[in-house]
Amino acid sequence: MWESFFLDWLQAAGPFAILLSIIFNTFISILAFIPSFFITAANIIFFGFWMGTLISFLGESIGAIVSFFLYRKGIKAFSPNVLKRYKWLLRLQQTEGGRAFCLILALRLFPFAPSGLVTLAGATSKIKWLHFAIASTLGKIPALLLEAYSVYQVLEWNLTGKIILTMFSILVVGILIIRKR
């Protein structure tokens, strides 16, 4: 549903489709709780695998940097205790320099770390924005390639796509069961 809605917008944007996709991805990054895989899927359908992946990567990277600045300005004032539920994010919040850089890079590489929370923790830490931008962007490369490949396989609906979707479904059900306990 979201994918077709977004595809309609890309079609209507014509020569500004790339810019529109990056803006949408940035907006989704700022919201922090909406997954961006549907934008990745639409980008792959509309622009092709490699160009769609590159556009999604640019959007997510720019979105993380913009979010970092917005969070740094606002979230500290409005909700400073939101990170207390996540011990690994608290650790990032209390580090700086090279250690913070490595933690952000590692958390971006870890596929199950919520991107918005990583950005929030980075924004509330002592890391410099440039170090955050580099670590975050480098960490997004393998994560987005994995996401793009998975989305592409599901879109193609071949055996690999079916296996990926089945594994993802089992993972989601498993997480829900664990959280309920």
Rank of each mutant, 00 (worst) to 15 (best):
residue 6 F to H: 04
residue 73 K to M: 11
residue 115 S to F: 13
residue 57 F to N: 02
residue 77 A to K: 15
residue 101 F to Y: 14
residue 27 F to N: 01
residue 131 H to Y: 13
residue 37 F to E: 14
residue 97 G to K: 07
residue 107 L to A: 14
residue 7 L to C: 06
residue 12 A to L: 11
residue 179 R to A: 13
residue 78 F to A: 11
residue 122 G to K: 08
residue 162 K to P: 02
residue 132 F to I: 08
residue 92 L to S: 03
residue 167 M to T: 10
residue 145 L to Q: 05
residue 116 G to Q: 09
residue 79 S to F: 12
residue 74 G to L: 14
residue 42 A to G: 00
residue 165 L to M: 10
residue 13 A to Q: 05
residue 53 T to C: 06
residue 36 S to Y: 02
residue 128 K to C: 00
residue 104 I to Q: 09
residue 21 S to E: 07
residue 62 I to R: 09
residue 49 F to V: 02
residue 165 L to P: 01
residue 179 R to T: 10
residue 20 L to M: 11
residue 150 S to T: 15
residue 68 F to G: 14
residue 95 T to Q: 15
residue 145 L to E: 04
residue 144 L to E: 13
residue 173 V to N: 05
residue 129 W to D: 01
residue 64 A to R: 12
residue 67 S to D: 08
residue 118 V to A: 12
residue 32 A to M: 11
residue 173 V to M: 05
residue 119 T to G: 13
residue 72 R to L: 08
residue 10 L to F: 03
residue 132 F to T: 05
residue 129 W to I: 09
residue 69 F to W: 14
residue 4 S to R: 12
residue 180 K to I: 00
residue 79 S to W: 11
residue 88 W to R: 10
residue 118 V to L: 12
residue 166 T to C: 13
residue 62 I to C: 12
residue 87 K to R: 15
residue 16 F to W: 15
residue 179 R to M: 12
residue 47 F to K: 02
residue 131 H to T: 00
residue 181 R to L: 07
residue 26 T to W: 01
residue 66 V to A: 10
residue 100 A to G: 06
residue 132 F to A: 06
residue 100 A to M: 09
residue 61 S to A: 15
residue 52 G to L: 06
residue 16 F to T: 10
residue 98 G to W: 09
residue 21 S to K: 03
residue 87 K to V: 06
residue 38 F to R: 00
residue 97 G to P: 08
residue 89 L to V: 04
residue 105 L to D: 07
residue 113 A to S: 15
residue 163 I to N: 03
residue 129 W to T: 11
residue 36 S to K: 06
residue 95 T to N: 12
residue 71 Y to F: 15
residue 84 K to A: 11
residue 25 N to G: 14
residue 103 L to K: 06
residue 144 L to S: 12
residue 104 I to D: 10
residue 15 P to A: 04
residue 95 T to H: 07
residue 78 F to T: 11
residue 94 Q to W: 00
residue 13 A to L: 04
residue 12 A to C: 02
residue 101 F to T: 10
residue 175 I to V: 14
residue 49 F to G: 03
residue 111 P to W: 09
residue 111 P to V: 07
residue 153 Q to Y: 04
residue 66 V to I: 15
residue 122 G to I: 04
residue 3 E to I: 12
residue 109 L to C: 15
residue 127 I to N: 05
residue 154 V to Y: 08
residue 174 G to I: 05
residue 2 W to L: 15
residue 165 L to A: 15
residue 166 T to K: 02
residue 126 K to V: 01
residue 43 N to M: 06
residue 23 I to P: 03
residue 101 F to N: 10
residue 168 F to L: 14
residue 142 P to V: 09
residue 126 K to H: 12
residue 66 V to N: 08
residue 21 S to Y: 01
residue 10 L to I: 05
residue 119 T to P: 06
residue 170 I to A: 14
residue 8 D to S: 13
residue 132 F to P: 05
residue 24 F to R: 03
residue 151 V to P: 08
residue 155 L to F: 08
residue 29 S to L: 03
residue 153 Q to R: 13
